[in-house]
């Protein structure tokens, strides 16, 4: 039976502040189940969203979530509270997703590889999406963006992180993030015009 799933999360003196906060102190034990359970409960969905938006594949995104939290477990004892713990976890998740994406690109025998790349070319995307419901349409529209643009847009506009934190997570300048956001918003505006009135 899973400890991480079933352990009730109770406030304790060692409560971990989550969004845009820094850890007050390092966990004293690498196996601090309550802390890890809390982090998993808080960030599993967000890590899954980021991974799926980068990879376009739910199964691979689930694998990324698992790998991310394994790395979190291993690295938590060395986390020094130098930044928001959310950004630290997103950074690990982003790197895992990129690693997974490269691996998939290299694996030419994988029939499921390059999910977004297999979508229709930009010119025909609109025709394809006409028959899809909204959720599928926003998926397909995002699939037309490049991977770095998707990552920036997901962190800023879906997750709502500040531009500065997005830049830190992606290891690029804030102006690069802004450029990617402008590109994403404009491309999505054109593709989803009928939903934006």
């Amino acid at each position: 039976m899973s400890t991480l799933l079933l352990d009730p999360i109770q406030p304790t003196a060692r409560q971990v502040p989550i969004h845009s906060a820094r850890m007050q102190s390092r966990p004293t034990e690498p196996t601090d189940t309550q802390t890890l359970g809390q982090l998993f409960a808080e960030f599993a969905d967000a890590t899954y969203t980021l991974s799926y938006r980068i990879l376009g594949d739910r199964h691979l995104a689930e694998d990324v979530v698992q790998e991310t939290f394994i790395k979190v477990i291993r690295a938590l004892p060395t986390y020094r509270g130098e930044g928001p713990i959310a950004a630290w976890i997103y950074r690990i998740g982003y790197r895992e997703a990129i690693t997974m994406s490269r691996k998939r690109r290299d694996d030419v025998t994988d029939p499921d590889s390059a999910v977004f790349a297999n979508l229709p070319a930009a010119e025909s995307v609109e025709d394809t999406v006409m028959s899809m419901d909204l959720v599928e349409r926003i998926d397909v529209a995002m699939g037309s963006l490049s991977e770095p643009v998707r990552a920036a847009f997901t962190l800023r506009d879906i997750q709502g992180l500040p531009t500065r934190e997005v830049a830190e997570i992606l290891d690029v300048s804030q102006s690069a993030v802004k450029m990617r956001l402008a590109r994403a918003r404009e491309a999505l505006r054109v593709q989803l015009k009928e939903y934006l009135a």
Partner: peptide
């Protein structure tokens, strides 16, 4: 509207079966 659309519909929930498997 683009930001609003994705803020409302772009976030995903890790499926329960995956959550259990990963937690284990």
């Amino acid at each position: 509207g683009v930001t609003r659309l994705y803020r409302e519909h772009g976030a995903l929930k890790l499926p329960d079966d995956a959550r259990k498997r990963i937690a284990a």
